[in-house]
Write a protein that binds this DNA or RNA. Sequence first.
DNA 1: ATATTTTTGACGGGATACGAATTAAATAGC
DNA 2: GCTATTTAATTCGTATCCCGTCAAAAATAT
Lengths: 393, 393
Amino acid sequence: MRAINRFNVLDTIRRAGSIARVEISERTQLSTTTVSAITASLLDDGLILARTEGDLREAAARGRPRVMLELNPDAARVVGAKIAANRMVFVVANFRGEVLSTLTLALRVDRQPISVITDLIEDGVRRCVVDADLALDEIDSVCLGLPGVIEHRTGHVRSSPIFRENGVDFAKDMSERLGVTTIVESDAHAITLAHHWFGEARDLDDMVLVSLEQTLGLGVLHGGQLFRGAGGLSHNLGDLALGIGPQGMIRLASLAGESAILGDQPNGGRFAEAIRLGRGMAHAKTLIAAEDNTLISAAIRAGEACGMALANIVTLFAPPRVILVGSSLALGQPFLDSLRDAYSLAIPPSIKGVTELVFDQSTDETWAQGAAVVALRELYESPWGTTGPAPAL
Amino acid sequence: MRAINRFNVLDTIRRAGSIARVEISERTQLSTTTVSAITASLLDDGLILARTEGDLREAAARGRPRVMLELNPDAARVVGAKIAANRMVFVVANFRGEVLSTLTLALRVDRQPISVITDLIEDGVRRCVVDADLALDEIDSVCLGLPGVIEHRTGHVRSSPIFRENGVDFAKDMSERLGVTTIVESDAHAITLAHHWFGEARDLDDMVLVSLEQTLGLGVLHGGQLFRGAGGLSHNLGDLALGIGPQGMIRLASLAGESAILGDQPNGGRFAEAIRLGRGMAHAKTLIAAEDNTLISAAIRAGEACGMALANIVTLFAPPRVILVGSSLALGQPFLDSLRDAYSLAIPPSIKGVTELVFDQSTDETWAQGAAVVALRELYESPWGTTGPAPAL
DNA sequence: ATATTTTTGACGGGATACGAATTAAATAGC
DNA sequence: GCTATTTAATTCGTATCCCGTCAAAAATAT
């Protein structure tokens, strides 16, 4: 009970950035008395800070000035990471989710043995923490966002393009290696929360995000919570079946996945090199601008498939907004136009106008920040210090 | 707080059917004291009854015998209805959800003006209530389950094969006509709750149900609650886009909807007559048994489309169980086999084994009972009498 | 008839939330 | 410069709710 209200108050403060107690009371529907008690306890635990200046009401403010409350940035620190097949991005974030340091490692990790990958991740985490002038034992938790089908609750990776193996108990492995609580989450879920906290969905508690990267991911926010399948599974849109072709099931990934669009490039070529470095899509865009017909038609095919899948997702979830993110957006007009066209063709008339499409080209850092948000959200909900008064010393 | 616990206790009693206070305490994790207080208040409000006999422990039960508690069937009465294009089924149910009377009206209502339809529904409700030896003012609420895209929260029918018009404010219309609170819900959601309360999902709080009728509906149960799209929208699977054909978008309904399977039958023929009376699928089954090739291939096509759509839904929701219901199941082997084959082909390997398929041929009465459950659930959650001690008289 | 076992009910303690009143800190007006 | 006014935050008292402990009730076993 108190825990719920505590979380609500804390989250209200986070959303507002800086807010007075009165306004918290208005927004949470809690009495000012209760808000006072809870904020006192939060101040006591060092999770929030009071600032006397900064009362932003109309300049002519009579009465006792408000004391603005805000998250104490130093209350906790987390590491978030986006692990992709050809790059890893790490961030250290403070309690507010602000990025303290960033580290990008541009290297291919897929098809490596798992021990190599965990080595690289451990290294990246440690280096990023050092870059932030911190030690690892000052980090409260780590969250790794990776593509594929992730069981967040158990920390199992059921399948991921990163690993050769299936069913890796990844959270446990990394927790032991780092000596820090490590959470595993789908990269799509991470970027979904990043948008909820900082991006295009700050104003919404219900929305859907589709990520178009090497794999195609989905994040569904429902009542401010990530909608996880029963068992905490993440979704993998790339596995969606589109129809039966000559070589069996045609899945979305085989039309709209990164590798499907970019195609098999001759080894050693400039394009292949760009792909290896994670700049494949940007390179593809310049090729498309130069009217590379193979690429253009691949982009159009991918856009059509995505647009239709998107319409189906909207049919199922009917969110007020869908955010599209991911490297494939960099393909530019041919892809986006065909996606939009296919979407408006495929969207059923009965829910036309319900959903707004937003395209967002976030940087990899934002994804990693999203992973940090996943870690922070768990911290927010966990019991801090004592609920009641501090024990006498 | 108390409201939550009250609801939990009431729901525990409902699930158990008949249960002693001690066991409620075990299941809800509430202390026996609290359970006693809550059950006393529930008894006071007449929502539950105590029964001295019926202690079902081991025969040699020493000690004070348990007093079994159960829902008071007469605490409330609701009407549930399934409104389909060619039939209406009404039930009156008591507080336990047990059916007191049933009424089936076999008549085509689609394409009728809305006032005719509302007239017929009003008539059906009234007759069914009379059949249960009740008067309309003894009914606490009414829930109408209909196909299409329904906004439960507002009571708007965005689109339905029943109505010519879109955007009908149906709940308000019917509430005014009947003088009883009337709720509108998707028929698929209704049958989903029916299975949760009485059917194949009694043991589960997470599951997905797919209804294959004139339209194709979806019900997602998540944490014991219906998952409604943002805005309380229901889902319409028939609108799912499968691909682009010569005449525009091919939707699931055009392959697997009832009319798509049964085809255009010559007017006045026996088959057309059977369809009109809501026996189309049963008739089709006998024709299939007689090796009617047109129908068999239609059934196979429909099964394939459904199987693939089903796999996609499982990919998105990953429920432990999927229940398939609806008239199309009556088509028999050709349909079911092709559905199962397409499903296992389309289900991604990474989540194979997560989901169990269950086929269930419920009667129309069950659907109407599900609508009654929707109404009852809202009653359960509404405040009954006083929370605290009864005011002195 | 008595002891035993099991369930139910009653009383006090601790925690929480809210309303009313109080204190605090600033501005507006004279 | 002093007082009145206004708004914010806190304190205090009250009601609610939950739990733990203990006693009463209701059956069976001896």
